[in-house]
């Protein structure tokens, strides 16, 4: 018979075990830093990968932890993009200050729209998130005097980063900047999901009714996680605006939200790295195939995605072991 104190100690130990830093994680971030030193040709692509990864990380918080299926996450990304672009254009050209303002503003937008998302179940949520995305996209188009409409926002020229580094045409500063910001936000997200608060959010996803029965305010948990994710998505958008020095209406487009969901499904949800890994795979494969066959790359991407779904991601990763097992089974 174990005592109550022993039970708590065991549970705490188990939780610490889950949240400890794994070697693979260290390897991942070291590789990202190494890329900065060894792949100077790829800064632009890596920058885009990192931004998409951060964006997918924010969707992972909503989907993988909060259990909310969103088809309109680009709303926050695009909103952050435009806020950052407009700030830079009209006075606040410091990149870091821009990021902070963007984070606050998209966080607020997330907070406001979270109340819509809380109403109803999965299908309604998909519809609501989708509509918010479409709505923002149309507002961006309508406010052409401010946003440049379908022609895009021109003349976004951020100040030197930390007063020292200029965003260069090779994307060197851009990648370093994006990598640093992504890392900081990743650490924050990681602390968040392994905090007691984060565990309670996961409990909501598992069973909202039971969670509320043990006294956890379900809606408040979801509001917080949704707003936090919105702020992160906004920062990802701001990074894109600042590093490409250009904003087009496309950042609010539906296909961004849809691609993002794909990326997350490829990478896997609910372990934070899914977004980053998915973005890396998706963008690299897309870039490689699009370079080889600019006309027909969509076909190959489609084929790869279908095979991933048909075969299953786990089985692709564990293919060698699986084959071995089958062979033995036959023999």
């Amino acid at each position: 018979m174990s005592s109550r104190a022993e039970n708590i100690a065991a549970a705490t130990k188990a939780l610490h075990g889950v949240s400890r830093i794994r070697p693979a994680e260290i390897v991942f971030w070291l590789a990202a830093v190494a890329a900065f030193f060894f792949l100077p040709d790829q800064y632009l692509l890596l920058n885009e990968v990192m931004i998409t990864g951060l964006f997918a990380l924010s969707l992972d918080l909503v989907l993988g932890y909060g259990g909310i299926v969103s088809l309109g996450h680009a709303a926050f990304f695009g909103f952050g993009c435009y806020v950052a672009g407009l700030l830079t254009k009209y006075g606040v050209a410091d990149p870091l200050l821009g990021l902070v303002i963007v984070a606050v503003m998209t966080g607020l937008l997330g907070l406001l729209t979270s109340f819509l998302v809380l109403r109803g179940s999965d299908l309604t949520r998909i519809m609501v998130t989708l509509s918010v995305g479409v709505l923002l996209s149309e507002i961006g188009n309508r406010l052409a005097w401010l946003t440049g409409g379908a022609d895009g926002l021109q003349g976004v020229a951020p100040d030197l980063l930390l007063g020292r580094w200029e965003f260069d045409i090779f994307g060197k500063v851009a990648y370093a900047y994006t990598l640093a910001v992504t890392f900081v936000l990743f650490v924050i997200a990681r602390r968040f999901v392994f905090s007691p608060f984060g565990w309670s959010v996961r409990a909501v996803k598992e069973n909202a009714l039971r969670t509320s029965a043990i006294g956890i305010p379900v809606n408040r948990r979801l509001i917080v996680v949704y707003s936090l994710a919105a702020a992160i998505a906004g920062i990802a958008g701001a990074l894109l605006a600042q590093t490409t020095q250009f904003v087009s209406l496309d950042v609010l487009a539906f296909h961004r939200s849809a691609d993002l969901l794909l990326i997350l499904i490829i990478g896997g949800t609910g372990y934070l790295y899914g977004g980053l890994v998915g973005a890396l795979l998706f963008k690299l494969v897309q870039d490689a195939i699009a370079n080889l066959t600019p006309e027909y790359w969509e076909f190959w991407i489609g084929l790869i995605l279908v095979s991933i779904v048909m075969i299953g991601r786990e089985r692709i990763v564990g293919l060698p072991a699986f084959l071995l097992k089958r062979l033995r089974g036959v023999a």
């Binding site: 040709d41 632009l44 490409t244 250009f246 699009a290 600019p294 006309e295």
Partner: peptide, 22 residues
Amino acid sequence: ILRDDAGVADTTRRVAQELVVK
């Protein structure tokens, strides 16, 4: 060197930058 941008402006920009620097 033919590259596709799918009509998306930030892709056009990145591809142009890559064509220049790479």
